[in-house]
C-alpha cells in the first residue's frame, strides 16, 4: 500500500462561466514524483495551482470539491493560506527570482514567517542551496543579485527558495520549458533526488520527461482526469483510448 500525501476529491473549478476542471478525483502518493500531462489548455496549470490555492487570487473563480492534505481539506474556511503555502511549495514555468541577493531569495519564506535567528537562517539557506544543487556555484557570492545567474541557475534558486520553508510537497509547473537541454537534464535529475524528502507534483508538456522521471502519471484532457496510474503502465499499456491517442501524438 502506498501512503498518499494529497487526496483530490471531486474537484470542480470554473473561471467565470467556463468550467475548467471537471470532477477530478485521484490521490498523489507520498515521496514520489507524480506527473500531470495533457494537451495545452486542458487545465494542468489550473489543477496544480489548486494544491496551494493560488487560484484563489484569480477574479471570478469558483472551486468545489476537496483536496485533503494531512487529514484536512485545504479548502476549508479555517485553512491558514500562509502555512499551507509553506507546506506546499511551488516552482513556476519561468524562473522568477526576486531582484534581491541570492541569500535573500532563499531566506524570503523564513523572513516572512518572522524567522529571526541569524545563524539558523544561514544554515537553512546553505542547506536549501545544497539540496537544490546550487551551493557550489554560488557559495562565494551569496550577496550578489540573483538576476546575474543563468536561467538554469535561477530555476534551481527558485527550487532552493521553495525548499527553505521545509515543504512536504513541491509543485513544478513545466519547470524546464524555458531552459536549454543541459539545464533541463540537471533539473530532471534534481527532481528525482528531491523525492527522497518531498512529494513532487510536476506538470509537463514533455511526455518523454514524464516517462523518464515520474513514478505516477495523471493524464488530463479538457479538464477531465482521463487516466491516472503508475507511469510505466500508463505509458506502455494505456487503458483509455484518449490516452493512447495523446501518447501517440494525435493531439499534441
Amino acid at each position: 500500500m502506498v501512503k498518499n500525501e494529497l487526496k483530490v476529491e471531486k474537484l470542480n473549478l470554473w473561471f467565470g462561466e467556463k468550467q475548467i476542471l471537471k470532477d477530478v478525483t485521484f490521490s498523489i502518493p507520498d515521496k514520489k514524483i507524480t506527473a500531470i500531462i495533457g494537451p495545452s489548455g486542458c487545465g494542468k496549470t489550473t489543477l496544480l495551482r489548486c494544491f496551494n490555492r493560488m487560484n484563489d487570487m484569480t477574479d471570478n473563480v469558483k472551486i468545489k470539491g476537496k483536496i485533503i492534505l494531512d487529514g484536512c481539506n485545504i479548502y476549508e474556511e479555517k485553512t491558514n493560506l500562509s502555512s499551507l503555502r509553506m507546506k506546499v511549495g511551488m516552482v513556476f514555468q519561468r524562473p522568477n527570482p526576486f531582484p534581491k541577493s541570492i541569500f535573500e531569495n532563499v531566506a524570503f519564506g523564513l523572513r516572512v514567517k518572522g524567522f529571526k535567528d541569524k545563524t539558523r537562517l544561514t544554515e537553512i539557506v546553505e542547506k536549501s542551496l545544497k539540496d537544490a544543487w546550487l551551493w557550489n556555484e554560488v557559495k562565494d557570492r551569496l550577496n550578489s543579485s540573483a538576476m546575474e545567474l543563468s536561467g538554469g541557475q535561477q530555476q534551481r534558486l527558485c527550487i532552493a527558495r521553495a525548499l527553505a520553508t521545509n515543504p512536504e510537497v513541491i509543485l513544478f509547473d513545466e519547470p524546464t520549458s524555458a531552459l536549454d537541454p543541459q539545464a533541463t537534464a540537471k533539473i530532471e535529475e534534481l527532481s528525482v533526488e528531491l523525492k527522497n524528502s518531498v512529494t513532487v507534483v510536476q506538470v509537463t508538456h514533455n511526455i518523454g520527461q514524464a516517462a523518464r522521471i515520474s513514478d505516477y502519471t495523471a493524464f488530463l484532457y479538457l479538464g477531465e482526469l482521463v487516466e491516472f496510474g503508475i507511469s510505466e503502465k500508463l505509458f506502455t499499456v494505456p487503458q483509455d483510448k484518449r490516452t493512447e491517442e495523446y501518447l501517440g501524438g494525435k493531439f499534441g
Binding site: 493560506l81 503555502r85 513556476f92 522568477n96 531582484p99
Partner: peptide, 21 residues
C-alpha cells in the same frame, strides 16, 4: 511583474508582506 508577486504569495507571504517585501 505578476510572476514576482505570485512567487511571493507562493512562499506564504500575505498581501501586506508582498507589498512591503
Amino acid at each position: 511583474p505578476r510572476q514576482l508577486i505570485e512567487a511571493s504569495y507562493a512562499l506564504g507571504a500575505n498581501k501586506w508582506e508582498t507589498i512591503i517585501r
